[in-house]
Design a binder for these strands. Structure first.
Lengths: 195, 195
DNA sequence: GTAGAATGAACGGCGGTTCAGTCAGAATTC
DNA sequence: GAATTCTGACTGAACCGCCGTTCATTCTAC
């Protein structure tokens, strides 16, 4: 009887509402209205408002990491893997502008989310990048003395900043067009020989 | 009569309180207690709680940008300028852990701050980086066909992510130790010839 | 007829903001 | 230079609007 994809509907509605108004400026009743249900119904599926945001983030990040893992596995060359990661990172955000808004702008706040709840999913993504770079260092294409942990954070940070600028700039251009230059600059930075 | 550096005391207290509890979990009365004054007094100097955060950010960013401009101007070589920027970025945060907490974690939230209020100060910082890179491209040390805007965001993003990881990781290591590798990887990425 | 899903009005407490009152020190008077 | 008045910075208890959450009631499917 209990609709099994009602939680999903609530999460999808929440993404749209949070993207429009921000988390703290969104009422639970706004999410309910957006989802076409009563506000009380939300509490049949989520214990608190916070839980909606945390669940949303976990779910989306898990999907994301899974698809990155899949695409990376399909590629042989470590350098091509890096290019894949960048391309996919930007593609996911470009294809989901509302999710992008929430991830880049709303989800950065405070203790609650970046620490604790979401730490696991984020570090899984870091792990993927880290592994690819180590693979490249092992094959000699990437400098063997590269500080991989630092380079991982740099690449993530670079992509993240491009994405944030794109969102804050009202998505006035195509994010995916930045993928190639970003990958090239980064690879040139970490590779043993020219790219 | 009216104490001219009371606003400053309030801001400094706010930094400590926000760093401990986060913006939304801090009461105005907490800031007042930290500053050793009554909560009502805050409203003699600031119209709203938001205004405290915005002012705090503006002021600190303006100081930061000014000091980066100064240090960069003292340097001749564009590549040395880049290294200076990275070193200073990390040094400022390392020397002001509470400010770092607020800037990296609390100030990322929502519409209110990154858009609007603070946009001007942030873009001034981007401008400094941008100018240095263009200078390097003009001198030929940096690839002349480098997409400077993108590279600017990449460098900022890379530094920012290193800083965020450092803050979230409870500042368990010395951030400034990352300055040299970060600068080197970036420079290698953007330079015309090896570094 | 009944279980249990859904509703939405009402509750409660939280916290930003206000403002009537206090008081230290400056100005004025004698 | 003491006494008195005045000023306005400061206080903090109280106010009040907001919104997350609850739960008595209604609806629906079987």
């Amino acid at each position: 009887m209990r609709d099994p994809d009602k939680p999903q509907q609530i999460i999808d509605a929440a993404i749209r509402v949070f993207a429009r108004n921000g988390y703290y400026n969104s009422r639970v009743s706004d999410i309910a209205r957006e989802a076409g249900i009563a506000s009380g119904t939300i509490y049949l599926y989520f214990k608190t408002k916070d839980e909606i945001l945390v669940t949303l983030f976990r779910e989306k990040m898990a999907e994301w990491v899974a698809s990155v893992r899949r695409e990376v596995a399909a590629e042989r060359d470590p350098l091509a893997k890096v290019r894949k990661i960048v391309a996919l990172h930007f593609r996911v955000l470009e294809e989901n502008p509302e999710l992008a808004e929430v991830l880049q702008v709303e989800l950065r706040q405070g203790q609650k989310f970046f620490r604790g709840a979401s730490a696991h999913e984020v570090s899984a993504y870091f792990g993927v990048i880290n592994d690819v770079l180590e693979e490249g260092a092992a094959s000699g294409q990437i400098r063997r003395d590269l500080p991989v942990k630092i380079a991982t954070k740099m690449l993530f940070g670079a992509m993240d900043q491009l994405a944030t600028s794109w969102v804050l700039g009202k998505r006035a251009y195509r994010l995916t067009e930045a993928a190639e230059p970003v990958a090239t600059i980064f690879l040139q930075g970490v590779c043993a020989h020219g790219v």
